[in-house]
């Protein structure tokens, strides 16, 4: 039932035993100890578990680990070492685009993915595409200030 799998996360190779039906979220959190990726609804409705797979935003709660074992996975722990990710982290810190911080990893990873895909996207386009990420504390307004500030700083 469990076979070894090779994973490539945040630029590092990992090898781990895992069952075929394991979700990427659980592999990251409990096998690799990368608990920055948060478990929310497990049904794809909240965005808290967002990671990047080959640069694309993916909900790790709905992704089987084996499906992505050949690809480059970027989690919140890897953003610091990523030039785009670092600017996103800085923008969220400066504007305090967070309160409890539970949805935050999902937001910063998703925004990093959007900016990699479309470096010249307007703030409105970015906000439109972040609607799948839920936040219960901020009313999204400090998050919006962080996104708008970042988009303006880039152009």
């Amino acid at each position: 039932m469990t076979d070894p799998a090779a994973l490539w996360v945040n630029g590092r190779p990992y090898s781990t035993e895992l069952p075929d039906d394991e979700r990427l979220l659980d592999t990251l959190r409990w096998r690799l100890g990368l608990k920055g990726t948060k478990e929310g609804c497990r049904t794809g409705d909240c965005g808290a578990c967002t990671v990047l797979v080959d640069g694309r935003s993916v909900l790790s709660c709905l992704t089987l680990t084996r499906e992505v074992s050949e690809e480059a996975i970027l989690t919140v722990e890897g953003l610091e070492a990523d030039p785009v990710g670092r600017t996103v982290l800085e923008a969220f810190v400066q504007e305090a685009g967070l309160q409890c911080g539970y949805c935050t990893p999902g937001f910063v990873v998703a925004l990093t993915g959007l900016l990699k895909e479309r470096p010249n996207a307007s703030p409105e386009e970015l906000l439109e595409d972040l609607q799948g990420n839920l936040c219960r504390c901020t009313g999204y307004l400090s998050i919006r200030r962080a996104v708008v500030g970042l988009a303006k700083a880039r152009t």
Partner: peptide, 20 residues
């Protein structure tokens, strides 16, 4: 800067769900 922001944006705080 809000003191917990640098940690939280990096997913670095331990919530109840992270306990192990």
């Amino acid at each position: 800067i809000r003191a917990d922001a640098p940690l939280k944006v990096r997913g670095g705080v331990e919530f109840g769900v992270d306990l192990e």
